[in-house]
Amino acid sequence: MAARRPGERSLLVPLLLPTWAMIGVFMVLPVGVMALYSFLTREFRGGVDWTFSLSAYDQFFFDRGLFGDEAPRLQWAYISIFWRSIWQAVIATVLCLLVGFPTAWFIATRPARSRGVWLFLITVPYWVNLLIRTVSLRFLLRDTGPLNQGLMSLGLVDAPLPVVNTNLAVQLGLFYSYLPFMVLPIYAAVERYNFALSEAAADLYASRWTTLREIVLPLVKPGIVAGCLLVFVPSLGAFLAPDLLGGAKTFMIGSLIDEQIKGSQGNWPFGAAVAVILMTLVLIALVAYARSVTRERSA
């Protein structure tokens, strides 16, 4: 440990201030407001009445309330929305991984000069607003869109394939929205990978698949995990893709929150409570993962 120079301690507070301010204003404060609102009473014109209440959570979990006369009963409607959202996000993440890993591998194995061009091309669609891109996807996928018209003119199908307003459309939308978040961290990991290790494995009689499984994947795993998190977490709370590409049957958490906060029949405490529950779930999943990794390392 280096000894602190004189004056360093007095500088510490002003130097750390921006960090504290940043975390305070952009993280602690908004999350705090959200958590606080979830324990308040609903005001019917939107907004809240400053009276403590657990009714938002009660409404989420129970059909017949905790505070009524009859025995409480679990409410499945919202839980099934959660379940569907998680499932949609899992599928979107798997799709992103299946396409993102080979893409990242391809870019990372190009000559250093052209890698920048490829990365640039990956980011180009993201200069366009997400809303516009999602709407365009709807145009591509709808019955009279290029996909179905193309398939029909080729004689592959007789009637348009119903893609819009299905789970598939939502998954495609999420996949399309978050693909770069998978490609970029995996690219960063593959770029650091020492390809001499693959040669060493081949030299020691490993097949290509064995080399991928035993050498490459363990070493680029941090990039894969980061990519999966970056896709899974926003997919879970997404509302644009489900709104624009899905139908009533594909209602997801993001849309539920959106409706509660912005809708005319909105319920701010309930919307906040859903967000708190979502955040808690994600945190539990992350902590569980982090602990499993630490155990693996120490084993």
């Binding site: 020492n194 001499a196 290790l197 040669e199 060493a200 494995a201 081949a202 030299d203 020691l204 009689y205 490993a206 097949s207 050498i215 363990p218 070493l219």
Partner: peptide, 20 residues
Amino acid sequence: REPNRRPVNTVFQQYALFPH
């Protein structure tokens, strides 16, 4: 022949030991 089917082994310049 593929390298994994040749009965020769290599000591690499930067060793290329598997770090994990």
